[in-house]
Computed example of a mutant assay.
Amino acid sequence: MNISVEFTLLPLQNDFESPIQDFIKELRASKFKVLENPLSTQVYGSYDELMPFLNDTIKVSFESIEHVVLNMKIVKSDRSDYEPNF
C-alpha cells in the first residue's frame, strides 16, 4: 500500500530555519520521493517502508529541538503525480 505524507515542521525558537533544513535534508537523503514547496514537504512511498523511516527521522528531529510542532497528513495513495484538472 502506497501513501503520501505532508509535513510542516514548526520549531518554536528564534533559530527555526536550521532545524527545518536538517529535517528536509534527512528526507532528501532517503530512497523516497520528496517534493517541497514554501509551506510544506511531501514524501511518497510504501507504508511499510516509509512509516518506520519517518518514525526515526521525526524522533531525531524532536530530540534536537526543545519546543516543536509537527503537522502531518497521511493519504492512502500515491498522490505525487496529481495535477489539477480544473
Rank of each mutant, 00 (worst) to 15 (best):
V68G: 14
P84L: 14
Y82V: 13
I3W: 03
L70W: 05
V69F: 12
V34N: 03
L39H: 05
Y82C: 06
P84G: 02
E6G: 06
E63A: 09
N37F: 04
S64K: 14
N2L: 07
L54M: 06
D15W: 00
I58F: 06
P52D: 04
D78Y: 07
F7Q: 01
S4K: 04
E63W: 01
F7N: 01
S4R: 05
D48L: 14
I3T: 01
M72P: 00
R79Q: 08
V43C: 04
S4W: 05
K33N: 07
E36T: 15
V69P: 09
E63T: 08
F62E: 15
F16C: 09
L50S: 01
N2W: 08
K33E: 06
E49K: 15
Q42W: 00
H67E: 14
L54Y: 01
L70H: 00
S40P: 00
N2G: 04
H67M: 11
K33Y: 06
N14G: 08
S18V: 13
F32S: 04
L35I: 10
D15I: 00
E17A: 15
Y82A: 13
V60H: 10
G45Q: 08
V75P: 00
V68R: 00
Q42M: 09
R79C: 10
E63Q: 15
Q21S: 15
P84Q: 08
I3S: 03
E66M: 03
P11R: 02
S4I: 05
V69E: 11
S80Y: 01
Y44T: 11
Q42L: 05
M51Q: 05
L10M: 13
